[in-house]
Nucleic acid binder design. Structure first.
Length: 487
RNA sequence: GGCGCUAUGGUCAAGCGGCUAAGACGUCGCCCUCUCAAGGCGAAAUCACGAGUUCGAUUCUCGUUAGCGCUACCA
């Protein structure tokens, strides 16, 4: 059996969205499972929808997710170029071949004429199909008209009856009747191939063994099969994966909030969590596990097990998953990801980070078990960087001025003397203050008291004082007292 | 309009003719708790509808409905 070669072929019209990421993921999985290769190809033939920077964004997202490719942009390969815009001569060559063999023809109909025709058919409640107006124009005559300045498109001649069956790896055999297809355009009048043509030429030339893509392409597959046949090529095996829908069951778009990998990243999700979640959306390891690595998935992955059903993605579960990874990932994997969030929040700068590496690492390690996103790591940490006034939004400190000072002083005294703290002596005051949900003081005092009494509530909180250190803690408390006195 | 794909709780998802219809997220309740979380335990919640096949349908067949996709000189 020949080598397995699959591809991910995004169109650079924006960021990599999670649907695309999932397609890439399952191709990656399949390639690795089969010991094959993953090829990345950029389908940039739609000049109108092209977006600047889109390619580099997509590559960045793929790399961030850990979905590496064996051939394509940045890594090269023997079947390049890997940008469709650089393969125009190839498409022209095969288009000419089809023209020459009488399997395709020039079409001089204008978009306006075609639109009018379609409108007529729509009103008559007829299927919309091209009337094959130009099908019988002799090649010589067509060439003469081109020489005279006309700019035609090229259409393939397709059989007008019969049926064609797609043997889909996921859906099984799907049969389409030919009468719903028309002689479709393979080469636009501007000399750029259409998707259905370019994809066939590329997939064949790049020697794809399997084409795994989103289900939206299933209905187009017969057209591609027809082109394979016209060109005398053997088609690859196809597998169409279900799509990912927005929570309202519609197609993903910007109005649904975060849909691109980049957005999820900036909201504080980590790559392995996204990959794990995406895997679960349409496939499972067969047992009850929910959290597993890419490596484990590679071993167990079976294309045939993929769900045929379109899946709605659920941010809640992704968030939960992210929390799992945040507490289990090696600290070294999290540190570089979380740093930008701290800088972004204005809590610290690069210089501080460099100077306080050890402290920072310990801080993250303390906080990460209780939060679900990197953004929450920051939120939970602000407390180590800001003083009491930053928390006292409700004016609790002022309201309980004498009590607050008494409480703080007792804590400080105990801390300074390294005494075991007498919980009873401050309980009443503490409760009085915290009843009002006045957590401002609680955030300064509570952990200290916990540490002093040696009682553990949550590992995170118990570590707080240890983390801050005695001197730092004392300083904080002194500052808090000073602040409260000014109220 | 035509054609195609799909159809188990709010979401993902096991199930492949006989089960009290797994599990996960979320929700709710309880426990833990000197903050907030995390964690532990438990509960509620599902076979779209209608025929047929069968001793017996979530499971097979057909139809209906719904969602999505394709029907472009978009990909």
């Amino acid at each position: 059996m020949s080598e397995v070669r699959v591809r991910f072929a995004p169109s650079p019209t924006g960021y990599l969205h999670i649907g695309g990421a999932r397609t890439a993921l399952f191709n990656w999985l399949f390639a690795h499972k089969m010991g094959g290769k993953l090829i990345l190809r950029i389908e940039d033939t739609d000049i109108a929808r092209l977006k600047e920077d889109s390619v580099s964004q997509i590559l960045t997202s793929l790399k961030w997710l850990g979905l590496t490719w064996d051939e394509g942009p940045e890594v090269g390969g023997n079947y390049g170029p890997y940008y469709q815009s650089e393969r125009l001569d190839l498409y022209k060559k095969y288009c000419d071949q089809l023209l020459e063999e009488g399997k395709a023809y020039y079409c001089f109909c204008t978009p306006e004429e075609l639109e009018a025709e379609r409108e007529k058919q729509r009103l008559a409640k007829q299927p919309f199909r091209y009337a094959r107006t130009c099908r019988e124009i002799p090649l010589e005559e067509a060439r003469a008209r081109i020489a005279a300045g006309e700019k035609p498109s090229v259409r393939v001649k397709i059989p007008q009856e019969g049926s064609i069956t797609v043997h889909d790896l996921i859906h099984g055999d799907v049969t389409f009747s030919m009468d719903q297809y028309d002689d479709f355009v393979i080469m636009k009048s501007n000399g750029i191939p259409t998707y259905n043509f370019a994809v066939v030429v590329d997939d064949h030339l790049m020697q794809m063994s399997h084409v795994l893509r989103a289900e939206e392409h299933l209905s187009n597959t017969p057209k591609q099969l027809l082109i394979y046949e016209a060109l005398g090529w053997e088609p690859p095996k196809f597998g169409h994966m279900s799509m990912i829908l927005a929570p309202d069951r519609s197609k993903l778009s910007k109005r649904h909030g975060a849909t691109s990998v980049e957005e999820f990243r900036s909201q504080g999700y980590v790559a392995p969590a996204i990959v794990n979640y995406l895997t679960l959306l349409g496939w499972g390891p067969g047992d009850e596990r929910e959290v597993f690595t890419l490596e484990e998935t590679v071993k167990l992955f079976e294309l045939e097990q993929m769900s045929k059903k379109a899946a709605i993605y659920d941010t809640k579960k992704l968030t939960w998953m992210n929390g799992q990874y945040l507490s289990e990932l090696p600290l070294d994997a999290i540190l570089p990801e979380v740093k930008p969030f701290f800088v972004e929040a204005g809590l610290v700068d690069e210089a501080w980070l460099d100077a306080n590496e050890e402290y920072f690492a310990k801080l993250i390690d303390t906080v990460r078990v209780r939060v679900k996103t990197l953004q929450e790591v920051v939120d939970a940490s602000t407390y180590f960087f800001k003083d009491v006034e930053a928390y006292d939004e409700k004016g609790v400190a002022k309201h309980f001025k004498p009590e607050a000072i008494e409480l703080l002083e007792k804590c400080m005294a105990a801390l300074e003397a390294d005494e075991v703290f007498d919980l009873e002596s401050t309980e009443a005051i503490y409760n009085k203050i915290s009843e009002d949900n006045g957590l401002a003081l609680g955030k300064v005092i509570h952990p200290t008291r916990l540490a002093l009494t040696g009682r553990t509530v949550s590992p995170g909180m118990f570590d707080v004082m240890v983390l801050l250190g005695k001197e730092r803690t004392l300083a904080r408390m002194a500052k808090a007292i000073e602040y409260i006195k000014t109220l």
